[in-house]
């Protein structure tokens, strides 16, 4: 399935870009699975997505927990805990 993935703040700086279209294997359909899949890409990705850092996620602009599932065409965003206000 194809989804759009966005990165913000220190995660964006670490991966060096802000968005990408990814083509995922059928088994990857939860935030947990997507983090695991991204963590396989290399050291930078493993540091971000293997669970050492707190990384929050949103699907189609709504905050979700790691068990949430997405569908083809969805927009998934990853970011650090928020610090506005």
């Amino acid at each position: 399935m194809q989804i759009k993935v966005l990165y913000f703040a220190r995660i964006k700086e670490a991966v060096n870009y802000s968005s990408e279209d990814v083509d995922l294997p059928e088994t990857v359909e939860t935030i947990t699975a997507l983090k695991h899949w991204l963590a396989q890409r290399g050291e930078v990705w493993a540091n971000l997505f293997s669970g050492k850092l707190v990384v929050r996620a949103a699907i189609n602009h709504t905050l979700v927990d790691d068990l949430a599932t997405f569908e083809s065409g969805d927009e998934v965003a990853f970011f650090p805990p928020v610090t506005g206000g």
């Binding site: 703040a9 220190r10 905050l63 970011f79 928020v82 610090t83 506005g84 206000g85």
Partner: peptide, 19 residues
């Protein structure tokens, strides 16, 4: 707002910058 709204702050001073 402090815990749910997607804003991130980065501070700088003359020596460094940090999230």
């Amino acid at each position: 707002l402090k815990t749910q709204a997607p804003f991130w702050k980065k501070e700088t001073n003359n020596e460094s910058e940090r999230w």
